[in-house]
């Protein structure tokens, strides 16, 4: 399973990198999203996928055997990362929107100055 997921992450990275190497700004934004998703998966995988119990302590019990639940720490980190990713996505979108509005070009190679036309 690790092998399949690793290959999947590799594919996501390849797509993301290909997208951010484009000249069209929309594709670059998409590339950033893909990369952030792929990176979240890497963190998830690095926590180990051996155990798949949900990270809850059943009612009445004092504690849970760590060996039965999936690692909660990477989950917490990814949760933060997802929400930050949301913020960054919004910010990049806004930035690109303004950029396009001002320069009226969507070709990144033209992005040499930020002056209004």
């Amino acid at each position: 399973m690790e092998l399949i997921l690793a290959i999947f992450i590799g594919l996501l990275y390849a797509s993301g990198v290909y997208l951010i190497l484009r000249r069209s700004i929309v594709k670059v934004i998409l590339g950033v999203f893909v990369l952030s998703n792929a990176t979240n998966l890497i963190i998830f995988l690095s926590g180990g996928i051996k155990r798949s119990g949900a990270g809850f302590i059943p009612a009445g019990a004092e504690k849970v055997d760590p060996a039965t639940i999936s690692d909660p720490l990477p989950q917490a980190l990814i949760l933060t990362a997802i929400v930050i990713g949301l913020g960054i996505a919004a910010y990049i979108l806004a930035l690109k929107y303004r950029y396009f509005e001002i320069t009226e070009t969507h070709d990144l190679d033209q992005l040499s100055k930020t002056d209004q036309k």
């Binding site: 949301l86 913020g87 919004a90 806004a94």
Partner: peptide, 13 residues
Amino acid sequence: TVSGVILTIILSI
């Protein structure tokens, strides 16, 4: 905070 953030973004747009 997060509600405020998301609403700020979406309402601005």
